[in-house]
Nucleic acid binder design. Structure first.
Lengths: 174, 174
DNA sequence: AGGCAAGTAGAAGGATTATTCTACAGGAGC
DNA sequence: GCTCCTGTAGAATAATCCTTCTACTTGCCT
């Protein structure tokens, strides 16, 4: 059960990340998940549920990548955290944040909005804990969101900008 | 011709901003545009063209709001510029940037991606011109994107964070 | 051995959608 | 007066999509 669920969730995440949340049909999702239609609907009884499943999987993977998992490798400061965020963008060839994409495709879905808030608050909380000084949570939020969003436009330049901003605001906390 | 085009473009922009780019059907778009189906297709011969029309209209309105139009009221510095961005978010009750939303709904559409890049580069160029010191374009990009994106989560706190960051990086240019 | 849980493959239904087309009304210009 | 342009209203088409359902297979447990 768990094994199959991971397989499906991973496939769904890949499909939505590559083609957005609007375009892929359920049959497309079935193909990238590599299961039958019936099994797909068993683990996610509607297309909306498939979106939620993909986002939950994404959340886990993002946290593991950026903040390290139990395997012991975790960033030691804000600078390293930002580098990991950039690395995530590089590896996933991300068109920006998948949670924002999901909300953008269905702006009136309260469930999605809830997931987005939960995801972002968890991320900012973990990031604040990496700071030496008691950095303002919304400061780090602006920096991380700015880095994530402008990555696809500025690339590596966005990373050095984000690092510079973080350094300055850590030197002069509010 | 011009009058009708503005009416249609404005209606399309409102519809997509309120309900996202995936959900509204062409008949929904017709309703919010307030014209007949035939006229709508005359000015935008396909649904994709309707998206482009809406985004062009959005681009004009955004620039006019944030950087002032020929009517004489323009921001004098970075701080004021950021306040105008925040004001835009307040007024438009924006779920983030509409261009990013469009790209998120169709990540493989090259036309959309081109429009996004063009929009953002124009914005950052105009913003840089508002800075006293020669601020790094990608710095201001990260700040504006961060403010825009985290507005829906942090609200006014995002604005003061963005202003603080801008102040710091203007004091210590690269 | 036999039955049950969980999988594949794919057809069918019913609804929605983008686009095109027909039929008609009002107004401006020659 | 007549014609052309631009508009409305709405039907028809052809395709796509989500969801459900049937028929069949495989492996595991008692």
């Amino acid at each position: 059960m768990n094994n199959m669920q991971r397989k499906i969730a991973g496939g769904l995440e890949r499909a939505f990340a590559a083609r957005g949340f609007a375009e892929p049909s359920v049959e497309d999702l079935r193909d990238t998940a590599g299961v039958s239609l019936r099994t797909l609907y068993k683990y996610a009884p509607s297309r909306d549920a498939m979106v939620l499943l993909a986002l939950e999987h994404r959340h886990q993977r993002y946290l593991a990548h950026v903040f390290g998992d139990s395997a012991g490798s975790a960033p030691h400061n804000l600078n390293e955290t930002l580098e990991r965020v950039a690395d995530w963008m590089r590896v996933e060839a991300c068109h920006g944040c998948l949670f924002h994409s999901a909300v953008a495709s269905a702006p009136n879905d309260a469930n999605l909005r809830g997931l987005l808030e939960q995801h972002k608050s968890e991320v900012s909380q973990l990031a604040v804990a990496k700071s030496r000084t008691g950095i303002n949570p919304s400061d780090i939020m602006v920096i991380i969101e700015g880095l994530t969003q402008s990555w696809s436009l500025s690339g590596e330049k966005a990373l050095s900008s984000a690092k510079r901003l973080a350094l300055l605001v850590e030197e002069k906390p509010v």
